[in-house]
């Protein structure tokens, strides 16, 4: 992206956040502050929770669980997706498993994992992996099925090695699908980790938010939510977005 265009996008992004905060502030001024604390009050509470309470450890635990589940699901899902996309036999044998996995309610998987493995981090991460992997498999399988055979023909004619075919022909065609799987996966993993923490964990953001809920502590809920949103936005703008721009720079719509 050209620096001038990047600058405009940064400004527009900043303006969008300011507008959101202004709307929040406006609504908070109209409503009773017990129902919707203002952004300023929530910011102060974030500071308090960071210094005096468990905000940082809670986020540390949740981030570690999400990162673990996400990484395992991406690796397993990518390998399985490639296998399903490349082999008709594997596809016929296991596609129904993927369909079942995609349609099992997340909460059922979490409860089963907790019953089988106890209320442990392993159970939570396994539940995340079981929920996320089928989605990755579906996206990667679709990517493999959409490989352009013209490039295989080019690779065969020029006698490219298997390694070169994988890294220079197949992986680049998979990258957009990997990025989509990564992006949708992250948003899904965040949500399910929090839900699973609510139902079966004694630490993490989900657990803490459920405590706030029991005490009707809206300030606490909004403080955690705001930090959560900030982390997600930071990941998007500092990591995923630049990575996507770099990996897809060759496309006319990204260059």
């Amino acid at each position: 992206m050209r620096p001038a265009r990047l600058g405009i996008e940064v400004w527009l992004g900043g303006l969008s956040v300011l507008m959101l905060l202004a709307v929040w502030q406006g609504i908070a001024m109209v409503l009773d502050s017990r129902f919707l604390p203002s952004p300023v009050v929530v910011a102060g509470h974030i500071l308090f929770l960071t210094q005096k309470a468990h905000l940082l450890p809670d986020f540390g635990v949740t981030l570690a669980r999400a990162a673990c589940g996400f990484a395992i699901a991406m690796v397993l899902g990518t390998a399985a997706g490639i296998a399903l996309g490349r082999s008709r036999l594997v596809d016929r044998l296991f596609l129904n498993w993927v369909v079942v996995g995609m349609n099992l309610p997340a909460i059922v998987i979490a409860i089963l994992c907790y019953i089988w493995l106890g209320l442990t981090d392993t159970a939570l991460v396994l539940a995340v992996v079981l929920n996320k992997t089928p989605l990755v498999i579906t996206q990667i399988r679709q990517g493999v099925l959409s490989f352009d055979p013209a490039y295989d023909e080019f690779a065969a004619a020029y006698r490219l090695s298997r390694r070169d075919r994988f890294w220079n022909i197949q992986v680049p065609q998979l990258v957009p699908y990997l990025l989509t799987a990564g992006r949708t996966g992250l948003s899904l993993v965040w949500k399910i980790v929090l839900v699973f923490e609510v139902i079966g964990s004694d630490s993490g953001v989900g657990f803490r938010v459920s405590l706030f809920f029991q005490f009707f502590d809206l300030k606490g809920i909004l403080a955690y939510t705001t930090v959560f949103v900030c982390i997600v936005m930071a990941l998007e703008h500092l990591f995923i977005g630049p990575l996507e721009r770099r990996l897809l720079a060759w496309r006319a719509d990204r260059g």
Binding site: A150, Y151, F154, A157, Y158, N168, I169, P172, W250, R251
Partner: peptide, 16 residues
């Protein structure tokens, strides 16, 4: 030995 093959559509890798 591999030939030099020129395709109808150039067939360049767009990501390289």
């Amino acid at each position: 030995p591999r030939p030099g093959l020129v395709f109808q559509d150039a067939r360049l890798l767009p990501w390289a």
